[in-house]
Every structure is written in C-alpha cells, then in structure tokens.
Design a protein around this nucleic acid. Structure first.
Lengths: 153, 153
DNA sequence: ACAAATGTAACCTCCGTAGTTACATAATCG
DNA sequence: CGATTATGTAACTACGGAGGTTACATTTGT
C-alpha cells in the first residue's frame, strides 16, 4: 500500500477548509501551521486536490484555498485517489521466469488479487465522507470539558 | 499501503513449494530462478514465512524449504501479515498543531479510518487461499495449448 | 572430508517522500 | 502605480526503505 502521509495531510487540510468555509480562502501558511509542515507541502497537496475538483485556489492577496464541494459530498476514496495515483500493491520488479509454470502465470493471478483487495480498501474509504470525519472529531474529544462523552453519560 | 514486492514474491514462492510438495525441500537457488531474483532475497523471505508457520526449512545438503500446511489452509491474508508487519497507511510524521481543533482530533479519526480500510483489504485477501491461486493459474493460460479456456468452449 | 544448503551480516544502489529555499507570477488594496 | 500577499513550481537536500549482492559461518547428508 501507499505508505505516504499525503492522505493524512489531505484529509487534515480538507477538514480545516470545511471548518473555515465561511471565512473565504485559507492560505497555505495557516494550513501548514495546523498540519505542522511546510507551506510548499500544502501547496503541492492543494494542486492535486484542485485537479480532482475538491478545492479551489485563489492567487494574490486575500487569496487561498477553499472547498469546492459540500463536506457531505466528498467521499474519502475520492481524496485517496486524488492523492495516491499509482497502484498500491507491489508487483514483480523483474519478469519472473516464464519457463516455470508458476512464473508464467503468477503475475496475472496476483494482479487480480491485488485489484480485488485494493477495491475493497477503497470501498471502505468510500463509506465515509469528509462530513463523517468532522462529526467523528466533534464527538469524544480526548479531554472532554464541554461535551459529554458517551461513556460518561 | 505497503508497495513492496515482498507479497508477490511470497505468494510466488509458496506456489512453487505447493507444486513441488512431493519432491522434498526446494533450495533457495531454484526458487530465486523462478522469481528472477537473488537467493538471499528468497531466504530472507523464507525466514519470515517460517516464523509464521507456513514453511519449514532444512539446512545442509538435500535441504531446502517445504510447505508446512496444505495449500487450502493458507489464506492470503496470513501471507500478507507474515510479510508486511507494519501499518499500511501513513500517518502524520510530526504531531499536528494541538491548538487547532482539527490538529487535536484528526489523528484519532484517521487511525480509525485507516484501520477499517486496511481491515477490508485484508478481509478480501482472506477470501482466497494458496489453493485458489494455484487453481486460477491452471485455468486460462495465456497461450492455451492443452487446456480448454472457458471462452473457447 | 567434501559438497550442498541455510542464516545472516555488511554493504551498495536506487527511488520515493518530506522538507526547504528561491523565485516568477498573479491579484488585491491603498 | 506600487507595495503587499499569496500561489505555483523548480531545484535541491536529507532520509528511509527496498531490492540486490557478496561474503562467510554453520549445518547436514553422502
């Protein structure tokens, strides 16, 4: 699987944009401060999210990024595919020995297995939207001061 | 996700061992010839598979690796977990800004999402066994000379 | 004893990713 | 207009992980 942290960064950024949706554009410097990374990392991420139609960016003073869709309409598999373009599971780096019956047939079978497993992975992501992420963050805060946790109720 | 080719190598090796189950131990040199890699790569793989109880290895002349379980009993998720120990999806490399409401809660939510998606991934792998892989390789060979393909029937 | 095989350490190279600096470009506002 | 603020992107570094390779100690069968 893709073990980069870009998906985590992307969901983080989208969550901030969702919370600040009424405030106009959010600049990459502010987003970087929340994610705790460099503004360029954020801008590279925003470029991909923009190509996927998830965010809009505005150059110049007062510009920044903003959500293009409602949080309820942004499924996490779409975010994943916007961020991680390549295939997730590794295949044979060199062509296996075609004179061995296993080497001749294993690549096709493994491709099918990988595709099925990755499809299940993305389908599970598709069951959640950005709005679900925001809702999950709202409940059960780690040190609940104002909100009643379900366990404490 | 883990984008290494170790899972592909592992299934390949196990498939060869399954086909040669009656021939006693198979040496790493022969396995490497089928996978088209180095015997040390194979031996490192076999070490993990041995720890998982999937294969047995025998040192010395006439030794080699052999299956410890029936192909029908080796589910692919077990192979995957034997080979890829760590978490598949990347998390935040640096702790996000805890003073931002998103930064304070996103890690826990993302961990839940990742766990669910990876679980779905492994569940899909669990639906197939090594025997299924062998069966899939047997049918529809790329250049069917002896076997009738379903399409041709 | 010799040959064949594993187990493992040490090292190299390659590639992807996060991070950083720098700068051209664009847009807003006074 | 011109200063300011921001994106977009190139170029570079640092780091880690993976596959690959050589070497060698050890074990085992003939």
């Amino acid at each position: 699987m893709a073990s980069s942290c870009r998906f985590a960064f992307a969901v983080h950024v989208l969550a901030v944009l969702a919370l600040k949706r009424e405030s106009g554009g959010v600049c990459s410097h502010l987003l970087a401060g929340s994610v705790n990374t460099n503004p360029v990392i954020i801008r590279r991420l925003l470029t991909r999210l923009r190509h996927a139609g998830l965010v809009c960016t505005q150059k110049g003073a007062g510009g920044g990024a903003s959500l293009c869709q409602e949080p309820e309409d942004i499924a996490l598999n779409v975010v994943y595919r916007a961020i991680e373009p390549g295939a997730a599971m590794g295949q044979h780096p060199h062509k296996p020995n075609q004179r061995c019956p296993v080497g001749a047939g294993i690549e096709r079978v493994l491709a099918e297995v990988s595709a099925a497993a990755e499809s299940a992975f993305e389908s599970e992501l598709a069951r959640r939207t950005l709005a679900d992420v925001l809702a999950a963050m709202a409940e059960e805060p780690p040190r609940g001061k104002t909100a009643r946790t379900r366990k404490a109720a």
